[in-house]
C-alpha cells in the first residue's frame, strides 16, 4: 500500500499574511512545495525565492525572429523573385516594408511567448491538474508542504503553519491513479463517479 499522507496543506485567507508566512517558514528551513493563489500575489515569488521570469527573453527572441523573417520575405519577393518596376523606384523599398515588418514582429513575439508560456508551464487542454484544495481559485491561498522532503515532523510543521497564520491545516494525498494523471482515467472517473469535489456545495 502506498503511503497515505504526503502533503500538509495550509489554508490562508489574506495575501499579506501569506507572504509573511512564506518568508517566516523559509527562514526556519521549511521546504515549501508550492503556493496556489486565486490571483497573482505580488512579492510572493520573491518570498518563495523564484528566479525572475524568462518570458521577456522569449518574447524578444521570437520578436527578433519575426523581424528577420519579415524583412527577408519582403526583400526576396519584391527584390529578387519577381521585381516590379513602379515609377522607376528601387525594388527593395525599405519604408514600404516597415508596417508589415512591425506586424510580423508583434505576431511572432506574442505567439512565441504565449506558446512558451503554455508549453513550459505544461498547460494544455487535456492536462489533469493536481489540486490540493478547490478553494484555491476562489478565495483562499493554499500552501502545500511535501512531508517527505522536510526533516521536521508532521506535528511540528502543523504547529508552525498555525503559528504563521494558517486558518486551517489539512492533509492531502494523491492516489497512484491521480498521480499518473491520465486524461482518460480522469474523464472516465468523471462520468462514472461524477464530480466528487468542488468549491461549491455538491448537491444530491
Amino acid at each position: 500500500m502506498e503511503k497515505n499522507t504526503n502533503y500538509l496543506v495550509g489554508v490562508f485567507g489574506d495575501q499579506d499574511i501569506l507572504v509573511k508566512a512564506v518568508k517566516a517558514l523559509r527562514k526556519k528551513g521549511v521546504k515549501i512545495y508550492e503556493v496556489f493563489t486565486p490571483y497573482p500575489v505580488h512579492f510572493l515569488e520573491d518570498a518563495l525565492g523564484y528566479k525572475r521570469s524568462w518570458m521577456p527573453r522569449a518574447a524578444f527572441g521570437f520578436g527578433a525572429l519575426g523581424t528577420t523573417c519579415a524583412i527577408l520575405l519582403q526583400s526576396w519577393i519584391m527584390g529578387y523573385e519577381w521585381p516590379m518596376i513602379i515609377g522607376g523606384k528601387g525594388f527593395i523599398a525599405i519604408p514600404d516594408f516597415v508596417p508589415i515588418t512591425f506586424e510580423l514582429t508583434v505576431l511572432f513575439s506574442a505567439f512565441g511567448m504565449a506558446g512558451s508560456f503554455f508549453v513550459s508551464q505544461d498547460l494544455k487542454p487535456h492536462k489533469v491538474p493536481q489540486i490540493f484544495d478547490r478553494r484555491q481559485s476562489d478565495d483562499k491561498h493554499i500552501m502545500a508542504i511535501d512531508l517527505a522532503k522536510n526533516s521536521l515532523s508532521e506535528d511540528e510543521l502543523k504547529t508552525l503553519l498555525q503559528e504563521v497564520g494558517a486558518e486551517e491545516v489539512n492533509n492531502k494525498s494523491f492516489t497512484e491513479r491521480e498521480k499518473k494523471a491520465s486524461f482518460f482515467d480522469y474523464v472516465s472517473d468523471l462520468f462514472t463517479k461524477g464530480v466528487t469535489d468542488s468549491a461549491r456545495e455538491l448537491k444530491g
Binding site: V35, K124, P129
Partner: peptide, 24 residues
C-alpha cells in the same frame, strides 16, 4: 488548460500579460 494557480505559473503569467500589453 489545467491551470492551477501555482505561484510559479502566476509569475510567468504576469510577465506574459505585461509584455502582451506592451506589444498590443
Amino acid at each position: 488548460m489545467g491551470f492551477n494557480g501555482s505561484a510559479k505559473t502566476w509569475m510567468h503569467y504576469e510577465a506574459v500579460s505585461l509584455i502582451l500589453a506592451g506589444l498590443s
